[in-house]
Simulated scan of single mutants.
Amino acid sequence: MKNLTGKVAMITGSGRGIGAHIAKRLALEGAYVILHDLEIHLLEETANEIRAAGGIVQQLIQSDLSDHDAGDTITQRLNVEKIDILVNNAGIAPVRSFQEVDQSMFNAMVDINMRAVFFISQKLLPYMNDGGRIINISSSLKKTYAPGFITYVSIKGFIEAFTKYLAGEIGGRGITVNAISPGAINTGLNPWFETEEGIKVLLNDQALKKLGQPSYISDAVAFLASEQASWISGAIIDVDGGFKLAP
């Protein structure tokens, strides 16, 4: 028996990268997946891959999370009455120093990485079955200083606090709320990860001497979405190979 047979899961930002890998993994576990992204061609590519592997795609939702009504837009487009799993994965991470961040960029990051997580969770909560799962994506960069990520990581601090407080607020319905903090994950979108320099820098920072793969994150999401994780809530789980634990 697959762990998520018959469950309905929505994954934001699932057109590519980690979000696409999460969607594929949940589908292989038996979930009916609702894919969300800004670009429809990316959604269609992910959907085709899932169907080719025998998974079920329930729906594609194209929307812009920078829209302040993003939560309402998504719920209005839902073609299901109930969902079981929400993965708040979508985000942007422009690299800018503190002095380079202007109000336009700051607002875009707050809208997509923070406001959307809050209000999509709020608007979808009435659709969520008791015993459901909300899984947010944070970042293991919170453990260190990385030039250019001051806005991104500051917002992830909000995500982790939000995760804990929402877990407390809705735990009476048996809904768990957890966050995963990925380390450096090679999604194939950044060629530097596969250079000799990149590999050396990344592995020097990790206790485990192997590069992060998207499957490591999707494995963790699949676990948190399963019945085996029914007594875990409010947790922030670092999936980062022991980032900053190397001697």
Rank of each mutant, 00 (worst) to 15 (best):
W231M: 15
G54Q: 05
Q59V: 11
I18L: 15
I74A: 02
L26C: 06
G54D: 04
L65A: 08
K82F: 14
F223V: 11
L224S: 09
Q228H: 14
M1R: 08
I120C: 10
D102T: 00
K156Y: 03
S14L: 10
N136E: 01
Y165V: 14
P94F: 01
K82C: 03
T5A: 13
I22P: 01
K244T: 12
F118Q: 09
G172D: 11
L35K: 04
G172Q: 06
G148F: 08
A146P: 00
I83D: 01
G13S: 09
E197C: 07
S154F: 02
G242E: 03
D64K: 08
D37N: 14
G71M: 06
F193P: 03
K200M: 07
I185M: 09
A167N: 06
T163G: 08
D205P: 00
G168K: 14
S139G: 02
V8R: 01
D67F: 10
V201P: 00
S97D: 03
I236K: 01
A52K: 14
V8I: 15
A9G: 06
G131S: 03
I92Y: 05
L124S: 02
Y165C: 11
M114T: 14
K209E: 07
G168R: 13
E194A: 15
N89W: 08
T163H: 06
G241H: 04
H41M: 06
T176I: 04
Y216H: 15
L202D: 10
V87R: 08
K142L: 12
M114C: 12
S14T: 06
F223M: 09
P191W: 09
D37C: 12
L224H: 10
R133P: 01
K123E: 13
I155Q: 01
L4T: 05
W231I: 14
N190G: 00
L124Y: 02
M109E: 14
P126S: 03
I134T: 03
D69I: 02
N89Q: 11
P191Q: 11
V57I: 10
S63Q: 04
Y32G: 06
A53S: 15
A222G: 09
I112D: 02
S218V: 04
L141H: 03
G198L: 11
A235V: 12
L124N: 02
V101S: 00
D37E: 09
L38R: 15
R77D: 12
Q99M: 01
S218A: 11
A27E: 04
R173D: 04
I40K: 11
G54K: 07
G131E: 03
S140R: 02
L60C: 10
E197G: 08
A246M: 02
S226Y: 10
S154H: 02
L203N: 04
T195N: 12
L65W: 05
A70P: 00
S138G: 14
G157S: 12
